[in-house]
Design a protein around this nucleic acid. Sequence first.
DNA 1: ATGACGCATCGAATGCGA
Length: 259
Amino acid sequence: MKLTTWNVNSLTARLQHVLDWTVANPVDVLCLQELKLTDDKFPLEALQSAGYSHCAVFGQKTYNGVAIVSRTALRDIVKNIVGFEDEQARVIAATLDGPAGPVRLVNGYFVNGQAPGSDKFQYKMNWLGGLRNYLRTELAQHPRLVLVGDFNIAFEDRDSYDPNGLRETIHHTSEERGHFRQLLELGLLDGFRMFDQPNKSYSWWDYRMLGYQKNRGLRIDHVLVSEALKSRVHACTIDRTPRKWPKPSDHAPVTLELQ
DNA sequence: ATGACGCATCGAATGCGA
């Protein structure tokens, strides 16, 4: 079973990219972030025609919005972080039945946070605390769990093109990295780092200043798998191909292969 | 460099992203 996380930066603007990409990469599940549309605008028919008949959607106007799009049935769909009041549509969870048992999927568009010390940064810290509490409960109920999404955190120095120049700036602060570590301490593993990976592997590049062409990127899109699934993980890769297409998302898709 | 580029809301200019 293959599942992909992809911040599409507007599903309306990126629908053709998503469809083209799934033709070349017919993964079982897509976890999408930054839909930037309301549920009534979700392109259900186009995705169903592409083989993704089961869609769990949590959208909102203009900003945020997440969805899980699957070839097989999704059940026990939960929107937002249980126990954390949030006006923004950032998290959707669902269970799907894989070949070796159920898999709980939690798909998040984590808060950006703008700058340390800002109100938005404080919101990010509160949000991350709420997510941790929620996941503790989810993991107790669903040992076979995968947390994916745009975390907006470059966890280690090697996840940034300029770790020293950007030290303690947004996505690189000790507080954000501490929250990431606390997620790992719940019993999750960084799927991407379970395998040898090329140096300077990133999942996001700024649109400006030839960011992609210069590989000035960050690895902020992550796939964390629970201990119970560890032996089932067979690969985790970032596909830079669609970042080279005209009018791309600034994020690349990250795919996990589970057996 | 309070920039750059892109998207949404709009029907110009602004908010926001990372």
